[in-house]
Structure formats: C-alpha cells, structure tokens
Design a protein around this nucleic acid. Structure first.
Length: 441
RNA sequence: GGCCCCAUCGUCUAUCGGCUAGGACACGAGCUUUUCAUGCUCGGUAGAGGAGUUCGACUCUCCUUGGGGCUGCCA
C-alpha cells in the first residue's frame, strides 16, 4: 500500500466524557497514521443531538490536546453530511438494496423506516489486520434499519457514507464493531465503493473480565487528568495494553512509538486494566520531567503565597529535587508540600501517637531545639552532625522520628535534615517548641 | 438460544515447531538508609483439559471447558 493514500480516522460520538477504551482507539489510529505517513482524520459523530452539545465537543478537543493527538485536515461533523447519507439511501432503494417498511420499534414507536437488504446466501468475509480472517454467512445477518421513521439516517449508513466521503482506507476501532463490519461491507459494495481495511481492537476489561467501566475506577480520560496522571504516562500505558514493540522496552518516547508501531503486532485478546502498573508508569514519567519544570509544577501546586521571600528559585529547586523521586501523582504534591508553605498543617494522629506521645519526647524536643539554635549555620549536614553527636554512633531514629513529626506532622516525607534546612531556623525551632509545649499539657 | 471471537505467571506480555518458557507491574527477601521513596541484588508463581499431526508442540488441527462480543428506529 502506498503510504500517501493511507487515511484512518477517529470517529467518536461526543458524549462529554472520553472513555479510555475509546481514546485507545484514537491512539492506535494516530500512531498508525504517523508511522505510515498517512492521514489521521477526526470525525465527530454528532447525530445524537441530545448528547452532542458544544461542551461535549469542547471536552473531546481538550482531551485530544492533552494527549497530544493532533489530526490532519478539518474536523468532519457527521451532522453536516446528512444530505449525502440520504442520497446514498435513495441510491440503495433505487437499486433494490434497501426498502421501506412499516415497523414498530422496541420502545413502541411505529412508523416507516428504511431497511438495508442483506444477501440471503453466500459468505461475507474480510481480513482483519488484528483478528485475521473473518467470515460469516450472510443468512446469519438480518436486514437492518438505516433510516429512522423521523427520516434521520442511522449510524450504519452515516458511518459508511462518511468513510467513503473522507476516503478512509483503514478503519481501526473497537471490537464491539466486528459484527457491524459484515453489514458495512455490504453497504460499501452496494454503493460501489472500495471496502476499507479493518483492524478491530480488543476491549479493555476489568479484573472480572467485563468491559472496563466507571464502576471499576477512573474510566474517562478527564478523571486521570484530574487525579494527576501525566498524559504521556497514560498514553504509554494504553499503548502497551495490547501492543508491544517485540522487545523488552516498555517506557517509550513518542518518537519511538511512532517508529515502532505496527498494527500487525496488536493483540487479539482483551486486556485487563491494571491501575498499579499505570501508577508505576506515571512515576517513571514524573522522574523524567526536567528538574526545572518539575520545580515550577511543585511551586504551582503547593498553593504557596508569593510573599515569602525566603522561598527563592533555589529553595524550590531543592525541595522539588527531594520530592521528585517520591511523587507518584502530581496530586500528591499539595499535601507533601503543605508543611513547607503553611504553618497550619495537619498532624497525623498515628504518627503523633507513635513518635511524640512517648515519655521523654517533650524534653528531647526542647533539648534539640536548643542545640539547633546554637548551630553555626543552617545546612542539612550541620544539623545532621548535631543529631549524630547525640546518638553517639547508634541509630539516629530516637531523635529523627519525633523531630520529623514535630515539624511536619507526618511520619514520612523527604530527608529530615533537608526538610529542616528548607524550613529554616526560625520555623524549625518554633515548631519543635510548640510541639513540645503541647505535649506538656 | 443463534452467530462471531478469544485462552502463557495474579496482571500486561515475549515466543512466529527445539523451552532450563524470557521481561515488566505487583508480591516476598536483602543491601543502601533517619522516615517514606528512589536505586541495586535475589526469589516464587504460567502454557485450561483432552485427542491428533510431528523426531519434537506453548506454538499446527479438532473436540471439550471457560471467558467475551453481537443479536435496536444506540453508536
């Protein structure tokens, strides 16, 4: 196949939220087009006027942009092609491949619809790029409606006519359309059009093997975004769910993906969505963020007030360098940075119980505050030396743990002495003493 | 019910007839260590069952079982 003729498309119906299974189809289409040098088209199947609002379409665009899925040519709106759909229907009626009939729908609507006439014998077959050879006896497929009693075209005819009009050569879509393909092939043929190549993608399923839905956790792209997932991490993970480069690489750059992606390597089997692996992937991508960018992300998400002069660029860089290997989700940043930017931070009850409410801790905190106060400078190494001297070669745990909880309210976090350096002398001493005084009561 | 599709560690997967079945996530152990992470090292767990083809089958064929999809005036 000549590469300049390859044209594939992502054809979602805008419902306001973009499901991960759906966006994976977009990703595969995009990668296929970019790999082959073909075109990636975007068609919005907005015939459902109830759900297809401008807001829903906007959400779709935002989602595409977030994942850096750029498309070629102008967006194709299905509603703008209704005239062509109906022309095709007339043509089908004229040649006997469609007919009008009085029908009562499931929900009780009665009226005249247009049905597409399926052949009554023979086999319909196609070679699916991922599923292989597919065949079905024509007699196993019933005639089906293509125009509603209100005169509006139905998915089957609209979809096929749009694909013809957009010169689509490759249809890469969800597994749930396999059965439709046998119907659509007949429409293409009846209309005298070339039948495109098909590639059907397996579904993303939950731990029970059922289609992954919102009941299983985040199911829409927007939710992953809100939860602090990086677009590249989600993209990479979704790609791996059903495709691999054939070697052991898993974390791939966009360029590598484009270079390596082949539809032929896409899996037939349904893949279970593994949130744990996605989380790991996200951590990998967070570690890849350039230090400067991560620092500004930390500053942005910390909710810090600009007024604090002590917090200069160096300060943020130091804090974020400590945070970067520890952050799994960008959404973890606010709670992790809170003790650094605000004196009003929560104390973890368990940590307080375990580290502070112990005999001698009050005295220990007062004592250490005094020793820190005398420190010649406020560098992490200097502060560490103070505690080292106290521990006399034994573990520093008995000092480190209470200090950590006293100044940050939590049992875990970045290195303690780095933490103290970042807090500064004044805040550290104040917090140590205030915690000690609370214990006295 | 009918039709279609699928089947390797718990999960994602490598393997396109030669396998002591490899990797990643997760899990366990250890090292590093002030915590939590990171990093490094090590470890366990897999070819649904049954026939057949073959010198040889995870790989090919058939059956069984299990799972999924479709069977709309939804897309």
């Amino acid at each position: 196949m000549s590469s300049e003729t390859i044209r594939c498309r992502f054809a979602p119906s805008p419902t306001g939220k973009v499901h991960i299974g759906n966006i994976r189809a977009a990703i595969y289409n995009w990668l296929f087009a970019r790999h082959t040098g073909g075109k990636f088209l975007l068609r919005i199947e907005d015939t459902d006027l109830e759900r297809s609002t401008p807001e829903a379409i906007k959400a779709l665009f935002e989602c595409m942009e977030w994942l850096k899925l750029d498309w070629d040519e102008e967006v194709f709106y299905q509603t703008k092609n209704v005239k062509r759909h109906l022309e095709a229907v007339d043509k089908l009626i004229a040649c006997g491949r469609a007919y009008k009939i009085e029908k009562t729908s499931r929900d009780g609507k009665t009226g005249e619809v247009v049905m597409f006439r399926m052949p009554k014998e023979g086999t319909i077959e196609f070679d699916d790029i991922v599923k292989g050879h597919m065949a079905k006896k024509a007699e196993d497929i019933q005639d089906f409606a293509i125009v509603r009693s209100d005169g509006s075209p139905i998915f089957h005819i609209a979809n096929v006519v749009d694909d013809i009009d957009q010169n689509v050569t490759h249809i890469i879509r969800g597994d749930d359309h396999v059965e439709n393909t046998f119907k659509h092939i007949e429409i293409f043929k009846a209309l005298g059009a070339c039948v495109p190549k098909y590639a059907h993608l397996s579904m993303i399923v939950n731990q029970q093997g059922k289609p992954y839905s919102k009941r299983d956790g985040a199911a829409f792209v927007g939710e992953f975004r809100e939860q602090g997932y990086l677009p590249d991490a989600l993209f990479n993970y979704l790609l791996l769910l059903g495709w691999n480069p054939g070697d052991e690489r898993e974390v791939l750059s966009r360029d590598e993906m484009v270079k390596l992606f082949e539809l032929e390597r896409v899996h037939v089997t349904a893949a279970k969505f593994d949130m744990k692996k996605l989380a790991w992937m996200n951590g990998e991508y967070i570690k890849k963020i350039p230090a400067e960018d991560f620092a500004s992300e930390v500053e942005k998400r910390s909710g810090a007030k600009e007024s604090n002069a002590a917090k200069d660029k160096t300060w943020w860089a130091y804090l974020s360098s400590q945070l970067q290997p520890r952050v799994k989700f960008l959404n973890d940043i606010p709670s992790m940075t809170l003790p650094f930017v605000n004196d009003d931070f929560p104390f973890d009850e368990k940590a307080v119980e375990k580290r502070l409410k112990k005999p001698g801790v009050k005295e220990l905190l007062f004592d250490i505050a005094e020793r820190f106060e005398k420190a010649p400078n406020w560098e992490a190494t200097e502060l560490e030396n103070v505690v080292k001297a106290l521990s006399q070669g034994n573990g520093m745990g008995p000092w480190v743990h209470p200090i950590r909880v006293a100044v940050s309210g939590r049992g875990e976090g970045i290195g303690l002495f780095e933490m103290l350096q970042l807090l500064g002398r004044e805040k550290t001493l104040a917090r140590l003493r205030s915690a000690a005084e609370k214990l006295a009561q």
